[in-house]
Simulated scan of single mutants.
Amino acid sequence: MTDGPRTVIVTAYDGAKLMDVAGPMQAFSEARRPDGSPAYQVVLASEDGRTVTTDTGVRLETVRLDDAVRPGVDTLLVSGGDLTHPLTVTESLRSCLAEHLDRPRRLGSICTGAFILAELGVLDGRPATTHWAYCRQLQSEHPAVEVDPDAIFVTAGRVWTSAGVSAGIDMALAMIEEDLGHEAALSVARTMVLFLKRPGGQSQFSVELRQQMRDVHGRFDELHDWIRANLGADLSVPALAGVARMSPRNFARVYLRETGESPARAVEKLRLAAARRRLEHTDDPVRVVARHTGFGDDERMRRAFVKALGVSPQDYRSRFGRPGD
């Protein structure tokens, strides 16, 4: 442990999202060392140290980034903003950041702040994430980045990236746990009335919503409704093609083109979503949930949960099930 509080710098600019700035700052500000003293000195910085106006209209006082980044700075975080603004909004900030990227022990971004790090080349060859709505754009504009569209946050050596809004707090809690240990992070989570850690790899939004947004033309809406109502049926490509009144080969090709994933992958995700709902809202045994949602047996469902969410069905229920289950 360092002698004094670790310095955490959060960078902001006009149009930065208030929650991206305030959420992590609050988490770090709540952290305490064993003697009760603050564990972090949290600094809000901008390129020129002027007052910045966030996306909500709230104005925040800042200090100059050049003055804030002193030797020994521990963590530098880049907040996200509205991507409808042109990149010129952060062009000058990026130039300023480029001079300081090697100084912090740890570097990170919140939400669309990943685009700023990507523009600086920090994320090249690394796994990273951002808000689910912009993952495809990040991958398209920066093909050297290994974009993970599902993760709440991603660590790659000294570089951390998080998904949207509240995920910045999840990432901050994980950093606190790495620095100070489990109990210190748990204390912050309790103070802020939060889960200490959402399951690793937990999807940023529901499978159903993902399916709706990818199938923008709604071509397979009726098929998806049929699958949800028949999760225990034969859901092979030939069977689904028959329901869609298409040849199996044409169905597989068109489905992949319209939704961005194979029919088999979509079926597993819909079964997973149904299993999650049952685990959250019923006290059915896991083996019964597996049977009703088409997994067949609890071991197959367990493997699907671990692969997609990073936790077993039992662990998922303990976090998100009804109180008392």
Rank of each mutant, 00 (worst) to 15 (best):
G4V: 01
P5S: 00
V10D: 02
T11F: 11
G15C: 03
A16R: 09
V21S: 02
V21Q: 05
A22S: 12
P24A: 06
M25C: 14
A27C: 06
F28I: 02
S29Q: 10
A31R: 01
G36V: 04
A39G: 04
Q41P: 08
Q41I: 03
V42L: 04
V42T: 08
G49A: 07
T54Q: 03
T54V: 06
V58M: 12
R59N: 04
L65Q: 05
D74C: 03
T75G: 00
T75W: 05
L77F: 01
V78R: 05
V78N: 00
S79E: 02
D82F: 07
D82A: 03
L83D: 03
T84S: 13
H85T: 12
L97Q: 08
A98I: 08
E99V: 10
E99R: 15
R103Y: 10
G108H: 01
S109Q: 09
I110Q: 06
G113N: 09
I116C: 10
A118V: 01
A118H: 01
P127F: 07
T130H: 05
L138S: 04
S140V: 12
S140P: 14
H142N: 04
H142M: 01
A144E: 14
V145H: 06
E146Q: 15
D150P: 08
I152L: 13
T155N: 13
G157W: 04
W160N: 07
A172P: 00
M175I: 06
L180W: 00
G181E: 00
H182E: 06
E183W: 03
A185G: 04
S187L: 05
V188K: 03
T191A: 13
T191N: 12
M192C: 07
L196T: 09
R198G: 08
Q202L: 15
S203E: 13
S203H: 15
G218E: 06
R219V: 12
R219L: 14
D221F: 15
E222C: 11
L223N: 00
D225W: 15
D225A: 15
W226K: 11
I227G: 00
R228I: 10
A229V: 05
G232V: 11
A233K: 11
A233S: 07
D234M: 02
L235A: 01
S236I: 01
V237W: 08
A241Q: 09
A241E: 05
R245D: 14
R245W: 07
R245K: 14
R245M: 13
P248W: 06
V254R: 12
Y255I: 04
G260W: 02
G260T: 03
E261Q: 11
S262M: 02
R271D: 01
A273I: 09
R276E: 10
R277Y: 13
R277M: 11
L279P: 10
E280M: 11
V286Q: 09
V288A: 15
A290P: 02
T293R: 06
G294D: 07
G296L: 00
D297R: 09
D298Y: 09
R302P: 08
R303N: 12
A304W: 03
F305Q: 02
V306N: 10
D315T: 13
R317V: 09
S318G: 06
S318T: 12
R319D: 09
F320H: 07
R322W: 09
R322P: 06
